[in-house]
C-alpha cells in the first residue's frame, strides 16, 4: 500500500458513492450535483494516475460544460425542485444487470492484473499528450471538428423551430399538388 493507493481508494470511494447517488437520487437537480462530485473525484484519480492533462480537461469540459448542460436540460424541462416519484421504472432486473456487469468487470480486472505493484509512469503532461495527439492522432482530431460542427448546427436547428421556416405551412395535400404544378418541375410517372 503506497500513498497513491490510499489516495486512489479514497477518491474511488467518493466517485463510486457519488455515482451511486446519481443513479438512485429522487431529486433531478441533486443527481446532477452528485454527478459533479463523482466526475471531480475521477479527475482526482487521473491526477494520481499521472494524467494531468486529462484531469484538467475532465474538470473543464465535463464538470464545467457537460454537467452545466445537463442542469440546463433539467431546468428547461421544468423539472420539479423537490423529490419526484416518477423518475424510475419498477426495479425489475436492472439492479441485477447493473451488479452483474460491475462485479463481472471487476472480477475480470482482478483476474488479469492481480495485486501487482506497477510503477508510476511519466506524467501525462499537456506537452506529452499534445505530442501524442498531434503525432499519431491527427486524423481523428480533424474529423472531430466536423463532428463538433455538426453537433452545433444540429442542436441549433432542433431547438430553433423557426430556422429556415417558410411562410406557407402546407398541411393541406391539395395545396401540395398545386404547388408542385406551379413549380412545373414534375414529370408524370
Amino acid at each position: 500500500m503506497t500513498i497513491a493507493d490510499v489516495l486512489m481508494i479514497a477518491l474511488g470511494a467518493v466517485a463510486v458513492g457519488a455515482g451511486a447517488l446519481v443513479v438512485t437520487s429522487t431529486h433531478l437537480v441533486r443527481s446532477g450535483l452528485y454527478l459533479v462530485v463523482s466526475l471531480g473525484a475521477i479527475a482526482g484519480l487521473y491526477l494520481v494516475l499521472g494524467a494531468e492533462l486529462v484531469a484538467w480537461v475532465q474538470v473543464l469540459v465535463y464538470v464545467g460544460a457537460v454537467v452545466v448542460l445537463l442542469l440546463f436540460a433539467v431546468m428547461l424541462t421544468r423539472a420539479p425542485i423537490g423529490p419526484s416519484t416518477d423518475l424510475d421504472r419498477p426495479i425489475g432486473p436492472s439492479a441485477l444487470i447493473g451488479a452483474g456487469v460491475g462485479l463481472g468487470l471487476a472480477a475480470l480486472f482482478a483476474d488479469a492484473f492481480r495485486w501487482i505493484e506497477y510503477p508510476r509512469g511519466a506524467p501525462g503532461t499537456a506537452e506529452r499528450v499534445g505530442a501524442e495527439i498531434f503525432g499519431t492522432w491527427v486524423l481523428p482530431f480533424e474529423v472531430l471538428s466536423i463532428l463538433l460542427l455538426s453537433a452545433l448546427v444540429g442542436a441549433i436547428v432542433l431547438s430553433r423551430p423557426d430556422v429556415g421556416r417558410r411562410e406557407v405551412k402546407p398541411d393541406d395535400p391539395r395545396e401540395t399538388t398545386d404547388r408542385a404544378k406551379e413549380e412545373d418541375e414534375e414529370v408524370p410517372a
Binding site: D5, M8, V16, G98, L103, F109, A110
Partner: peptide, 18 residues
C-alpha cells in the same frame, strides 16, 4: 501503485451506469 484499484473503481462506475 496497484492498478487493480482504479480498474475496479471503473468497473463499479460502469456497473452503476448500466
Amino acid at each position: 501503485m496497484h492498478v487493480t484499484i482504479p480498474y475496479v473503481i471503473a468497473a463499479a462506475l460502469f456497473g452503476l451506469g448500466v
